[in-house]
């Protein structure tokens, strides 16, 4: 079955009814995606399917043909969310963290606290009481915006330079 996995075209042989969660962990060797309940309640197995957060324990592998799957391993380098989860106490035991970060990555960039709460309502965390997670998302939003601003500023400089030439 051909699909895009973390930005790369891949071809994986696995039964069509196998859970995407198991295909990722066992056939693709990507163990960052976790299983917490196997019934779509806890969100530990959250991945992005065509940019939308889904529970990979509820997705039969057959459904990903030709689509794009992004897992925690696909956040290249250190994503601002990952940094913010570390510095703001967004992660304690860590088992919900990959799914939580993927769900947070699917939020609109300027999500309000209420939008964050609704957006993360499908992801259980038993350690933090969610407060550290909200702080982390907010901080990442801030640094994400700064990063965008930097990119824009850089692009602006380039244009100016080009114009000068």
């Amino acid at each position: 079955m051909r699909f895009r996995l973390n930005g790369k075209q891949v071809d994986v042989r696995a039964p069509a009814m196998k859970r995407l969660l198991d295909v990722l962990r066992e056939d693709c060797g990507l163990t960052g995606t976790k299983e917490g309940c196997g019934e779509g309640e806890c969100g530990a197995c959250t991945v992005l399917l065509d940019g939308q957060a889904v529970n990979s324990c509820l997705v039969p592998f057959g459904q990903v043909r030709g689509r794009s799957v992004k897992t925690i391993e696909g956040l290249r380098g250190r994503h601002p969310l990952q940094d913010a989860f570390i510095t703001e106490g967004g992660a304690q035991c860590g088992i919900c963290t990959p799914g939580m970060i993927m769900a947070a990555a699917a939020l609109p960039p300027n999500a309000t606290l209420d939008q964050v709460r609704v957006g993360l309502a499908g992801n259980l965390c038993r350690c933090t009481g969610y407060m550290g997670i909200y702080r982390a998302v907010k901080k990442a939003q801030g640094s994400g915006l700064k990063a965008q601003a930097r990119t824009r500023a850089k692009a602006g400089t380039n244009r100016t330079q080009k114009a000068a030439r």
Binding site: E39, V116, L120, A121, N123, R126, M131
Partner: peptide
């Protein structure tokens, strides 16, 4: 014995906590 009907608090069930 399932998380479907044993409800641990989600974001929506957890209030603001001031420490």
């Amino acid at each position: 014995a399932q998380l479907t009907n044993y409800a641990a608090p989600t974001t929506m069930d957890t209030p603001r906590i001031d420490v």
